[in-house]
């Protein structure tokens, strides 16, 4: 019994000393700067407010996209939320022209049936955004089935939201969502590493005023 303090000390000391865990690989898969400048939503602007066109399946695509991008981050770098009013949004996602039918997306081979555009508008200083980031989605191939078009829109919204998060360049790897033409349905490991590094890089482009 008199050895209790010694036993406690041995038990504690035996587990107390340890080597630190090794950090994993955080090498980005592609560049994300805009002609040398870097943009990402700063901590004090989270959650980023997304407005999605109320027609068709756009809200579903944008909500899925926000969720998938949120899931790429481990350390509280990004949060997004859908808002019902475009006048209080940081990112506005709309249909450019026609509204595709809201049908379950085709899960077969991807077809380039649509196109997306994301435009950051700079103020006169050139180092701050002037207003919300605008994203639009357009039908490219009217011969595609509604399901193929829905699948294209779903992955292209995800790709365009990547631009809205600050990934201002295209990837050259077709297995990444940020490939010039997105062929995959979710961000890949290279997208995750790249957006992680972006959100730990000091930005040189300020967000738009609120």
């Amino acid at each position: 019994m008199r050895y209790l303090p010694l036993a406690v000390a041995v038990a504690v000391a035996g587990v107390a000393c340890h080597e630190p865990t090794l950090p994993p690989n955080h090498t980005p898969a592609y560049a994300f700067d805009y002609f040398g400048d870097v943009f990402h939503w700063p901590q004090d602007r989270l959650s980023v407010r997304f407005f999605a066109d109320t027609r068709g399946a756009m809200r579903t695509y944008v909500q899925r996209g926000v969720n998938l991008w949120e899931q790429q981050f481990l350390y509280g770098e990004f949060r997004g939320v859908l808002v019902p009013d475009s006048t209080h949004a940081d990112v506005i996602v709309v249909w450019a022209d026609s509204v595709p039918p809201d049908v379950p997306p085709d899960e077969g081979a991807p077809i380039k049936a649509c196109v997306g555009t994301t435009t950051p508008e700079f103020d006169v200083s050139g180092v701050a955004l002037a207003g919300p980031i605008h994203t639009s989605l357009a039908v490219l191939m009217s011969s595609a089935t509604p399901a193929q078009l829905a699948a294209c829109m779903r992955r292209t919204v995800l790709h365009e939201l990547g631009h809205a998060l600050g990934l201002f360049q295209e990837a050259s790897d077709s297995l990444l969502i940020m490939n010039f033409t997105p062929w995959v349905n979710a961000p890949a490991d290279g997208d995750r590493r790249t957006v992680e590094v972006l959100y730990h890089t000091p930005p040189t482009i300020a967000p738009p005023p609120r």
Binding site: M1, V10, A11, G14, V15
Partner: peptide, 25 residues
């Protein structure tokens, strides 16, 4: 530290605790 090192340390802690319990009749 390799992953194999940690279970050894846990064993140290748990063995000591076990000894404590055995020593209390």
């Amino acid at each position: 530290m390799k992953g194999v090192g940690r279970p050894g340390r846990w064993r140290v802690g748990l063995v000591c605790v076990g000894w404590l319990f055995l020593s209390a009749r």
